[in-house]
């Protein structure tokens, strides 16, 4: 695809822009900003990836992965306000997931140690982990605020903090994993997954694209379960003090 063809593709931005103007939805500014940002960000990342792939250096590969973890952490911690120490919990979760999945894939010889494979797959693992962590934190905070009377009840009966929060924690883990599991059930029937479509459009053999997509699906299932579980089990003790008293979410003044 050439830059001229890309410019032609902007017709797909003009249509929603026209709609928002006609219907006075007030979204025109956001659509323009989103378009400019996506073009800029993707072109920059395209040039960076070209440089990293051509350099074939593990250091640049590692830097790219650290950059992804940093950006994902920045995105998630906003949802974690009220839980002290959420930043290091998220970093630890993302590093653990990336190390575990990449270690297994490279160790078992599922993918070769090449930037063209490691970086895009890491992006998908970290990105999916970010979405799952966001979903989990959203649901967990909601559960905790809704069930604080049950949490105190169980503590008052002599239960430990872990027992007191067990229901809220598992509900939040379950709920945040449901979209991933449900999406996988209809995969290929309702829509062709993004990675597979990309490979086919790029000229890859459809069966090879399917095999890679299946790998990604299995990875996403792992990242979904580990992200929610790890963030949950790291975060819940921060809602109690050392005297097994419930302190709940602790928002800083002004939040």
């Amino acid at each position: 695809m050439s830059y001229i063809e890309l410019a032609t593709a902007l017709v797909f931005v003009v249509i929603p822009l026209a709609l928002t103007l006609v219907l006075r939805l007030g979204l025109e500014r956001d659509i323009v900003i989103a378009t400019v940002r996506s073009i800029t960000q993707l072109l920059i990342i395209g040039y960076i990836l070209t440089f990293v792939f051509e350099s074939d250096s593990p250091i640049f590969m590692l830097l790219m992965i650290l950059l992804m973890i940093g950006a994902a952490t920045q995105n998630i911690i906003k949802k974690g306000d009220g839980i002290p120490g959420i930043t290091w919990m998220i970093v630890l979760t993302l590093v653990t997931i990336e190390t575990l999945t990449m270690g297994l894939m490279l160790g078992l010889g599922i993918i070769p140690f090449e930037p063209e494979k490691v970086i895009p797959i890491s992006g998908m693992v970290i990105g999916n982990s970010m979405v799952l962590s966001l979903l989990f934190l959203n649901k967990f905070k909601d559960e905790v605020e809704r069930s604080d009377d049950v949490i105190e009840l169980i503590l008052s009966l002599g239960g430990t903090p872990k027992v007191a929060i067990d229901r809220s924690l598992k509900n939040a883990i379950r709920t945040s994993m449901i979209p991933t599991v449900e999406a996988q059930k209809t995969m290929g029937l309702v829509q062709l997954p993004g990675m597979m479509s990309g490979l086919i459009i790029g000229g890859a053999d459809p069966m090879e694209a399917v095999l890679y997509q299946l790998l990604i699906l299995f990875l996403i299932l792992t990242t979904a379960s580990i992200s929610a579980t790890l963030v949950g089990y790291l975060a819940y003790p921060r809602l109690f003090n050392e005297k097994m008293q419930y302190i709940g979410l602790t928002y800083r003044k002004g939040e």
Binding site: V150, E152, L153, S156, L157, G158
Partner: peptide, 19 residues
């Protein structure tokens, strides 16, 4: 032992929370 103490001192709350 705080957990033992809580077993000896029962508490019923205003909202009668239930699982």
């Amino acid at each position: 032992d705080i957990l033992e103490l809580r077993k000896k001192i029962g508490m019923a709350f205003q909202s009668a929370p239930m699982i």
